[in-house]
Design a protein around this nucleic acid. Structure first.
Length: 278
DNA sequence: AAAGACTGCAACCGCCAAAAT
DNA sequence: AATTTTGGCGGTTGCAGTCTT
C-alpha cells in the first residue's frame, strides 16, 4: 500500500492566499501552536491542504521572518555557505536569522547565481569558469529575434538586485522563545568582552559565530507563551549589530587561511563546516 | 499603445526520513 | 519488524508585473 496523500485535494483552495485565510491561519496558530498540519486546516476553518498551511506559515506569516532587501554581508554569507553546503537551503537559511529557505533559494536562483556567473565563477562548483560568457551571450543573442543586426551586442549587466516587497504588517499577539533570539541575547551579553576585546581564540570566534547564527533546531515554541506583541517585521539585529562584527571575524578567519595556510585555522574552518552539517 | 518576452517570487509537487502505530 | 503518517526539503511551475520592441 502506497503512501496516502497528505490530504484530499477535492474542494480545497489553491493558489495565492487571501488576507482572510492568512488571518485565520495566524489566529489559529497563535492559539494552538504549530504542528498537526494535517488536521489544522479543518480546525482553523481553512479549505487548504495542511502542507499548504505549513508552507504559508513558514515562508510568509511567521512573525520572526525578516523581510526586506538582503544586505551585501548576507549575500557574501550565502555564497560562502553555498560553497560549503551546496543547495541545502534550509541549512543556509538556518544560519541567516529571519530568512526562509524559500527566500534564499529564490534569491540564489534569481540574483546570486547570475552575479557569480558574471564574476566568472561557476555558481554550482564555485570554481572559476573558463571564458565562455561571451560565446554564450552570442548564442543567446543569436537565438533571439535579430530584427536589428546593426545593434551592438548586449553586454551582460550586473543583475538588478531584487526588491523584496514588504507584506502588510500582520500584528500578532504572542511571544516566542526562539533559540535564535536567545543566541543574540547571549552574544550581545558576551560581545564586549570576547569580540571587541580581541582576545578570543579562532575556535571561540567560530563557536560564537556558529552560536549566533545557529538555527532553531529544537523547533519553535512560538505560541506557548502568550504575552508580547510584535509585528511581522523582524526586530532581530541587523546590519550594524553584532552579526556584522562576528561576520567580520569570520571573514578575517577565512582570509587568514588563504594568506597563512595555517593548518589550525583550516581545521577550525573544517569543523565549522562540519558543525553546519550536524 | 500594444504585443510579446522576460523576470521574480509564491506556491505546489514529489520524494525522503523520522515518528507513530 | 512492518506499515502508515507526518513534517520537512529541494526542485519546479504558474502567474503577475515589468521591460523591450
Amino acid at each position: 500500500m502506497g503512501r496516502a496523500p497528505c490530504c484530499s485535494k477535492v474542494g480545497l483552495h489553491r493558489g495565492p492566499w487571501t488576507p482572510r485565510e492568512d488571518t485565520l491561519l495566524s489566529k489559529y496558530i497563535q492559539t494552538h501552536g504549530e504542528g498537526q498540519w494535517r488536521s489544522l486546516p479543518k480546525k482553523a476553518g481553512l479549505l487548504r491542504c495542511g502542507k499548504s498551511c505549513r508552507l504559508r506559515w513558514m515562508n510568509y506569516l511567521r512573525p520572526d521572518i525578516k523581510r526586506g532587501n538582503i544586505s551585501p554581508d548576507e549575500d557574501d554569507l550565502i555564497i560562502r555557505m553555498h560553497s560549503l553546503l551546496g543547495n541545502r537551503w534550509s541549512l543556509i537559511a538556518g544560519r541567516l536569522p529571519g530568512r526562509t529557505d524559500n527566500e534564499i533559494k529564490n534569491y540564489w536562483n534569481t540574483y546570486l547565481s547570475k552575479k557569480l556567473r558574471n564574476q566568472g565563477t561557476d555558481p554550482n562548483t564555485h570554481k572559476k569558469l573558463p571564458i565562455v560568457q561571451d560565446d554564450q551571450l552570442k548564442k543567446k543573442n543569436k537565438s533571439k529575434k535579430q530584427k536589428n543586426k546593426s545593434k551592438p551586442t548586449k553586454k551582460f549587466v550586473e543583475p538588478k538586485k531584487p526588491i523584496i516587497h514588504l507584506p502588510k504588517p500582520i500584528r500578532i499577539t504572542a511571544s516566542f522563545s526562539l533559540s535564535r533570539n536567545h543566541s543574540f541575547e547571549l552574544i550581545n551579553s558576551s560581545s564586549t568582552s570576547t569580540i571587541n576585546g580581541g582576545t578570543s581564540s579562532s575556535q571561540e570566534k567560530l563557536d560564537q559565530f556558529q552560536f549566533l547564527v545557529d538555527g532553531d533546531d529544537q523547533g519553535h515554541d512560538f505560541v506557548n507563551n502568550i504575552g508580547a506583541e510584535f509585528e511581522c517585521q523582524s526586530s532581530l539585529p541587523t546590519g550594524n549589530g553584532t552579526l556584522e562584527q562576528l561576520y567580520e571575524e569570520y571573514l578575517q578567519l577565512l582570509k587568514s587561511t588563504t594568506e597563512e595556510n595555517n593548518e589550525d585555522i583550516d581545521q577550525e574552518l573544517a569543523s565549522f563546516a562540519e558543525s553546519l552539517l550536524n
